[in-house]
Design a protein around this nucleic acid. Structure first.
Lengths: 220, 220
DNA sequence: CGTCGAGAGATTGTCAGACAAGTGTACCGA
DNA sequence: TCGGTACACTTGTCTGACAATCTCTCGACG
C-alpha cells in the first residue's frame, strides 16, 4: 500500500502510522485501561493486516504504554501509586542532573523561559491547559543538554507521565501562578550558578506534583 | 515450533531467542560494524522464518544496537567520538544522581562492594577481565535504587558501553588497582553521606574512561 | 576518457492465509 | 456447591507472495 501521499507527510510506513495513532488514543485516555486490545481489533480498526497491528502493539509494549503476557491480549497499563512514584523519581533524577549541568555554565534555556511565560500569562487558579506548557518547560531543560540518549530516555518517561494524567480524570493541578513561580525560582538558581539549590527546588516542585497525582489516584 | 525444552529454559519465543543470540554476537564483536545484516541472512542463520528475523532485528534497532534506514539492510551501529561522549555523559547523569540518593541514607550497596573486591583480587595492571566486574560495580549502584524504569534506562546505555568496547579491539584499560581504589573512594564518600563528593569522584572516574575510549577510537 | 542515466538485482514493506499452542471461561457432572 | 473438562478466543509462528524502493553496474553520450 504505502501511498505516496502518506510518505510525504512524515509517515514512513503503515506500522508507524498505526503506532502513532494508537499512542495518541492511549495518551488522550480514549482507550481505557483494562479493556483488551486484541491484534484483530487493531487490524480492523485501521484496516491493516494483523502482522502490522501486531508490530504496532509490540512497539507500544516496548514503550511501556501497553502490557501483555504470553497469549493474552494487550491492555493499557494500569497506573498505581508505585508506578507514579517510580516514574516521578526517575524523572527527578534526570532533571536534577540536567539542572546541575546547566548551572555550571549558568545556561538558562530560552525555550524554558518561553514555556514558563506562557503559564504566567494564564488566568490564576487550577487549569488543565497548564499541563502542556508545564511539560514543555521541563522538556526544555533536558533538551538544553543536547544529548540524544538522555532526551530519548526522558521522553519515554514523559509518555508515562501523560498516561498518569490521562487515567486520573479529575486532573487537579496546582495553581498556575504557583507553578510559574516555582519554575522561575529554579531558573534563577541556575542563572546564579547554584546547581544544588536548583536541584532541591526541582525536587520539591516534582514531589508536590507526585503527591497530588497519588492522592487523586487513591480517590476511587 | 516452540519446543517445550526451549520454553522451560526461560526462552519465551523464537523471536526472543534470536534477539538474545544476535545481541550476544553483536556485543561480543562477532558481528562487525559495516557489514549488512539482512533479514534473509538472520533467518537462514537461525533457521527461522523471515518475519521472526525481522522482528528480532527491529527489537535491536529499538535498543540502539543496530541502525537501519528504509529499505536498507540493518547494520551494527558505528561508534564515533560523539557517540562515546553522549553515552558516557548520559551514564554519568544517571550514576551521579544515584550516588547522591544513596549518600542521603548512607547506603552502600553490598553488590558494589563484592564487585570491587573482585577487581582488587586481580593481579595489578591492565587486564580485559576487569571489564566485567567493573560494569557490575556500576550496575549495582543503579540497582540499589530499586527503580524499574531507571534500571531499564541504565541497562540500555550499558549495552552501548559494551558495544564501544567491542569495537575498540585493543581494550586498553586502566590499572585494576587504580580502578578499585577509585571505586572505594566513591563508596567511602557515600558512606560518609557526602553525595556531592561521591558525584565528583564518579565524574572524574568516568571521564578518564571516556577519554581512554575516545583516544583508542581515534587511533585507526 | 569521464560523466550521467537506465535497467537489473537485491532487499525491505506489507499482505493473505493457515495451523499450532496456550489461556481463560463456561458448562456439566459428582 | 465444587471440581474437572471441553470449547472458544487469542497469540505465536510459518509459508508464500507481490509491490516499492534502494543500490550497483553497465552502457551510451558528450
Amino acid at each position: 500500500m504505502t501511498t505516496t501521499s502518506e510518505a510525504s507527510l512524515g509517515i514512513v510506513g503503515v506500522v508507524d502510522a498505526v503506532t502513532a495513532q494508537l499512542r495518541g488514543r492511549i495518551l488522550s485516555g480514549d482507550i481505557r485501561s483494562g479493556v483488551p486490545l486484541t491484534e484483530a481489533a487493531v487490524s480492523q480498526l485501521f484496516g491493516v493486516a494483523r502482522p502490522s497491528a501486531k508490530a504496532a502493539i509490540e512497539q507500544l509494549v516496548a514503550s511501556g504504554l501497553l502490557v501483555r503476557t504470553a497469549h493474552r491480549s494487550a491492555r493499557v497499563v494500569g497506573i498505581d501509586s508505585a508506578t507514579v512514584r517510580d516514574v516521578y523519581r526517575t524523572r527527578t533524577r534526570l532533571e536534577s542532573a540536567a539542572l546541575r549541568e546547566l548551572a555550571v555554565t549558568r545556561t538558562v534555556p530560552p525555550a524554558a523561559l518561553d514555556a514558563n511565560a506562557e503559564i504566567l500569562a494564564m488566568p490564576p487558579g487550577p487549569d488543565p491547559a497548564t499541563v502542556d506548557p508545564d511539560l514543555r518547560f521541563h522538556t526544555a531543560l533536558i533538551d538544553a543538554l543536547d544529548s540524544e540518549r538522555t532526551g530519548r530516555m526522558y521522553r519515554s518517561v514523559l509518555d508515562e507521565v501523560r498516561l498518569c494524567m490521562a487515567q486520573v480524570q479529575g486532573r487537579r493541578l496546582l495553581d498556575a501562578a504557583v507553578i510559574s513561580a516555582q519554575h522561575a525560582d529554579i531558573l534563577d538558581a541556575v542563572a546564579s550558578g547554584d546547581g544544588q539549590r536548583a536541584a532541591e527546588l526541582l525536587e520539591a516542585h516534582l514531589s508536590s506534583a507526585e503527591e497530588r497525582l497519588v492522592e487523586a489516584l487513591d480517590a476511587d
